[in-house]
Nucleic acid binder design. Sequence first.
DNA 1: AGTCCTATCATTTTT
DNA 2: TGATAGGACT
Length: 721
Amino acid sequence: MKLSDLNNEQLKAVKATKGPVLVFAGAGSGKTRVLTYKVWYLIKNKIYLPKEILALTFTNKAASEMRERINKSIKCDGVTVGTFHSIGARILRKYIKNLDKRYSSGFTIYDGSDQKLILKEIIEELDLNNYKEFNPNLLQAKIDSFKNASMSVKDVQSEANGFENKKIAKIYDLYLEKLIQNNAVDFNDLILLPIQLFKKNKSSLKAYQNLWKYILVDEFQDTNSPQFKLISFLAGGHKNITVVGDDDQSIYGWRGANIDNILTNFKDTFPKAVEIKLEKNYRSTQRILDGAWSVVSNNANRAEKKLVATKGQGERISLIPTGNDKEEALAVADSIKKDIKINKSKFQDFAILYRTNAQSRIIEQIFMREGLPYSIVGGTKFYDRKEIKNVLAYLILICNLNDNVALKRIINFPVRGIGEKTIKLLNDLANKKKISLFESLQFAKELKLRNKQCDSISNFYDSINKFHDLLEKLDCKELFRVILEEFNIEYYYKNNPVEQDRYNNIQELKSSIDYFAETSGGGLREFLQEIALYTDLDDWNSKQNSITLMTVHAAKGLEFPTVFITGLEQGLFPLMRVDDSSDQFEEERRLFYVALTRAMEKAYLLNAYYRRRFGSQSTSSFIQSDFLNEINKDSLKVKKYKSVYTKRIVNSANGKTVKMARTVTEFDDFAVGDMVQHNLFGVGTIIVLNGAGENQKVGIEFKDGLKKKLIVKYANLKRID
DNA sequence: AGTCCTATCATTTTT
DNA sequence: TGATAGGACT
């Protein structure tokens, strides 16, 4: 690592070591480089000690990458690199009792599905089962948005008018109460509660301001208001902070991210901020950048800037309109096969991006049939699977006996004769005695239950207690094994023929616990903390030899030599038919910008005129995406794709017609005027085209004046743009 | 209490 | 299309 690796603007960002710095880092402009070099620079020149530096990211993957890259350059043990949520969790583990005595440091972190279970309980308690507007999904979104806006129950109550809103305020109130009872916090609390702590308890804030004397923030455009508030608190004393981001890549507005944080709020809060723009792009060709810019620059709400490629013009972006979703997938498959054949590229050079996860299915089907290896990132997450949730609930309950959500998940799993009615009786008993649901189990004899049920309940109670006591004595690897054994969990899955997938997932969980125990030496609590904040994206492995399928959101921060953007249709991408000047439409544009700027060399844009939705029999028709009207035409080249998926062939021996599956797919790759490269004859220009597809012939005039007629199939021509 | 069958619904993106 | 919730039956 040396300073001469950096360009002027990057250098300026690295050397600004006192006071606030705002870096606009366009796609592929060396954002991560600036961050890692800056940490290296701060430590090497002894401007700050490693332990005085805090680096915040959004994903675990970004955090571990940064840690790794800094580690390669300099000994940096003690630098704190973490996600907003993990740092929030760390602060709370230490100080949550100062905030509210009812909490203890062993709190559980609830994800969306846990939140919904709590809300379901509340809906039942308030007898609102029959109202469609009070469903867990909707209420969870409501509560998240209250929290994103930092609204207390009082704030919501004061704005509530009418039956529905008053009930929602009540539900919010009960929800917060239940979390405290369960000794649990949700994702938003990991940011909000530290803020409350810092307001209430100045000495804890002082402690962190003295600890972290330099703060770096990655992907600043994705911060929401509470996250910005938290940063402002931490940096509020010394104001030594660098934030790096790109307003054009702000794509989490729907989750509360506030693009104004990067556009105006940072400069308002830190008036002396130095502003630096990184506009040199090291990733993509100029054609790709121009195409992406021509769309995103239509946004009104953005900072003025334009990327310049260090790589040169490159090939044009290919636009491939197709008839339907199946044909779209085939066009992708054929383009990949062709590219591999001609350019010797590898499967991992390709990414297929789409707006919604549901679009992956048809692509998967076609790839499977065509024998193309692929891996899907996202979709149903490993730790969201039911069987994993169930097994983990045992571990969570053992750590936090107050966690009713965990208890209810497993009290009758595997089946032990404790049904819904019994649980309700126990719940009433707990309320009457003012004890937790778990503690109520020891008084089950007071209820009118069958002997068998009483035994079952007391066995369960004793076992859980036994493991709770063993918590500090066994490591998580051992503990997990005895738990699987004691509660017959493995046995249940192993002997159930329809549960084999689930059995395998349990095995996978087992090995991930083993791995954790061996590498970090942590206990069960540490393991649970880690996976509570884990996403599948975190272990996406670019080195495996397969084509990557993912949503545009999941692709942010990644790069691929060749990128296919599919489903470019009105209503799909952009997703909703909204006013093209609205904030939502601007976010869709940025999403398109993110998608296109993932490409290093080649980009393909695809749309289908008919698409099947919800797996319905009929297809609905779509018009091309507005983005295809907005995109600069000089960057584009339209390719005609005609799939001959089934072909009727007459058997000359018996005269019968047979249907042949998938013979050839026709591609018009060349046009008159295209420059091409031939292995033997060198560079030439196409002067005439005959026929199409398989048997297309081209007439070429080569540089030395030589004219040749060649068959495309055999000529092995490479187009040069 | 537990099992199996049918009806219904969802598709935006996720730390 | 595929998951899942709720109802009927054992």
